[in-house]
């Protein structure tokens, strides 16, 4: 297990603040773990490390660690963390759909999604510790998919606790504001002792998807526009008083 953290990195120790775990809590957790089946968690069987950019400010870029569950051949769900160790922060969720499912979505929905072809072909997307030969067939599948990633904890800007509404994330691309800072990539490569550049060369034969829906990667076709989620106060529809 790599000792270093990803993006949450430097401040990993102070984020979040709080007292260290008590022995009692450790015992309670251990007990619960023994008694409970925790089934959905056991189906996470792939760790992907890649990068993401905030849609509302693509100069802010993060290293991400996706723990992926494949629900069927066309749909995957991921818990996203900022590092790969036991102190990693849960920073969001990503859903991944095949090109086939993506084409069934309404255009207004499609604009929230990003493509995966570039980050896979360019070697940015890796399965840490998995030999490239083993990962290859899955990479070929995933190169044609689309993802929707919401970030709920902006540890990259030093948020000690999760703050504000969720942020939509975009994927790295080969040009313009979609290019990932090489320093970020170098740090990641050093951590896993890999070379994204070498992977890029090795992945040349992975087929480029014949069609990438232009509603995805919204900024590309829309003059570098992105999306932000805001929260408004309204009247709540109720069935009893609140709170």
């Amino acid at each position: 297990m790599a000792a270093t953290n990803g993006t949450g990195a430097q401040a990993g120790k102070q984020i979040p603040p709080g007292k260290p775990m008590s022995t009692e809590q450790h015992m309670l957790d251990k007990g619960a773990q023994m008694l409970q089946s925790l089934k959905p968690i056991k189906h996470m069987n792939q760790h992907v490390c890649t990068f993401a950019l905030y849609s509302h400010d693509m100069t802010r870029q993060i290293e991400t660690h996706h723990y992926v569950t494949r629900v069927n051949q066309d749909f995957l769900q991921c818990a996203v963390f900022d590092a790969d160790d036991s102190m990693a922060h849960l920073i969001g969720l990503e859903y991944i759909v095949s090109d086939r499912l993506f084409e069934t979505l309404p255009p207004d929905e499609q604009k929230l999604w990003h493509t995966h072809a570039y980050e896979i072909k360019s070697g940015l997307w890796v399965n840490p510790r998995v030999p490239e030969m083993v990962a290859r067939p899955e990479l070929e599948n995933l190169a044609k998919t689309y993802g929707k990633f919401w970030c709920t904890w902006q540890t990259d800007r030093g948020d000690k606790l999760p703050m504000g509404p969720p942020a939509l994330m975009m994927s790295p691309q080969g040009a313009g504001i979609g290019v990932v800072n090489p320093v970020l990539v170098q740090n990641r490569d050093d951590k896993y002792n890999i070379s994204s550049d070498a992977l890029k060369t090795a992945r040349v034969e992975i087929a480029e998807p014949e069609w990438l829906n232009p509603q995805a990667d919204y900024w590309k076709q829309h003059n570098d526009k992105g999306f932000a989620v805001e929260v408004e106060t309204t009247e709540m529809e109720k069935r009893a008083s609140f709170p």
């Binding site: 905030y54 849609s55 509302h56 400010d57 693509m58 100069t59 509404p165 969720p166 975009m170 080969g174 040009a175 313009g176 504001i177 290019v179 900024w219 570098d224 526009k225 992105g226 999306f227 932000a228 989620v229 805001e230 929260v231 408004e232 106060t233 309204t234 009247e235 709540m236 529809e237 609140f242 709170p243």
Partner: peptide, 21 residues
């Protein structure tokens, strides 16, 4: 605070500092 909260999507500029390849 006892109110309702509703999320809304806003289109914003995602180009902040400018980068190129």
């Amino acid at each position: 605070a006892g109110k309702g909260l509703q999320t809304v999507l806003k289109e914003v500029d995602c180009f902040k500092e400018g980068k190129s390849t």
